[in-house]
Design a protein around this nucleic acid. Structure first.
Lengths: 218, 218
DNA sequence: AAATATTTTTAGATTTGCCTAAAAAATATA
DNA sequence: TATATTTTTTAGGCAAATCTAAAAATATTT
């Protein structure tokens, strides 16, 4: 069994590792809101437990055990997010903090029963894939909205930033996870694009916004 | 906000207090599986936080704030137990440990939404009352099975011990929370009693067993 | 390449929650 | 009542997870 702190480190390493490049002490300190010195301490402990390989000054890489643990934590996190949004009527932008707590409840039986209860969802409310009990992830061919060509239809499946400013804007424009849209036009001048949702009048969104929206092609 | 350890102490004090008499260091050490010295340390801290009144060598009493906190924790615990049994199909005897973890997830909004989702249940799967969001408890006129007279009908609503031996026996005899029964006869010799479940043949249960079963009168 | 700046690690403290062993207080017994 | 027993507290320590400040390693500039 692992402590909450250990689990949080493993999860952070996994996410940074996924984002490419190798994971440095300072990156972890940043994403865990802690000091580099604390990170160094913990990395030594996690290496001793066989969850990651740690090379002084050079960075860190998860072992197979580490990856397995990370995926188990992410599975719990995303299942709970799904539960909170789909069953308890939370907004998809209010669930992160609560899921951060729930993900550390340790019971494989609970996780699996929750999964079955909800019909084994494959994606969480932010559009991120939910690993199965073996840690397998269904790869989603999702693409950035910016890359769509006029005429293509798609559904929003992920938002890569959670700032309240961005969420506010999505609320106003009635864009949410699952919203289906069609690209009408693309302006090379500022990379903005006209999109249409259902049969409402088309409207335009900026490059800055489109860049954070990922869609699943139909 | 309070730590998990603090919450567990407050909960333990509350339960011992409910059981009558004043709460001593050793009682707490027993029910928290810890050493008396640790209890003394924690009691000082909790007194400083205004959750209880602590008199050296004499015992401890919750303040209003302490009671409020205890009831909030118990509310979360019992709501989660209800969820685990009624929604996730756990047996009512397997949920305690998991609920011990879930009860420490801190979010009033979560608690309230969970409550609404399940239709604001008033009793958990063991028959214990669930405090409402203000900490009010619905008193249940439940009575020990031993006190029933022949001819009286009732439904099992609580089991006051969780030993696997007792649970095993209940399983064999097909007695569970909610089971309706009627008392057929009472033997003064050994205080055993004949009971009948539905229209099956009556059978007898010992005083030791009946003593741990509480029922709601019809 | 030397000097400067940044990143990372080490060393030494702190806090929380627990422990053991010994001292002090309360209770029971002779 | 004096003595023994039990309960509780104090004193001193330990492990986990964090911190600050200083030292060491690496990276960047000039």
């Amino acid at each position: 069994m692992f402590t909450t702190a250990e689990e949080n480190y493993i999860k952070a390493v996994y996410h940074l590792q996924q984002a490419g490049k190798n994971v440095l002490t300072n990156d972890l300190a940043g994403s865990l809101q802690t000091k580099p010195a604390s990170v160094t301490d913990m990395l030594k402990k996690l290496e001793a437990k066989g969850l990651l390989l740690y090379q002084k000054y050079y960075g860190v890489r998860l072992t197979n055990d580490g990856k397995k643990l990370a995926l188990a934590i992410i599975r719990r996190h995303r299942l709970w997010e799904y539960f909170l949004v789909e069953h308890l009527q939370f907004g998809w932008d209010e669930v992160h903090e609560i899921a951060e707590q729930l993900e550390h409840v340790k019971s494989d039986l609970l996780t699996d029963k929750l999964d079955v209860y909800m019909g084994s969802p494959k994606f969480d409310p932010h559009g991120d894939p939910i690993p199965d009990s073996k840690g397998r992830i269904e790869v989603q061919q999702q693409v950035c909205l910016l890359q769509l060509k006029p005429g293509q239809g798609a559904a929003i499946c992920a938002v890569t930033e959670q700032s309240s400013e961005l969420l506010e804007m999505l609320r106003m424009k009635q864009l949410q996870i699952g919203t289906r849209l069609e690209v009408k036009q693309h302006f090379n001048f500022d990379n903005s694009m006209e999109i249409q949702v259902r049969n409402q009048p088309p409207f335009s969104i900026s490059e800055q916004l489109a860049k954070h929206l990922f869609v699943k092609l139909k």
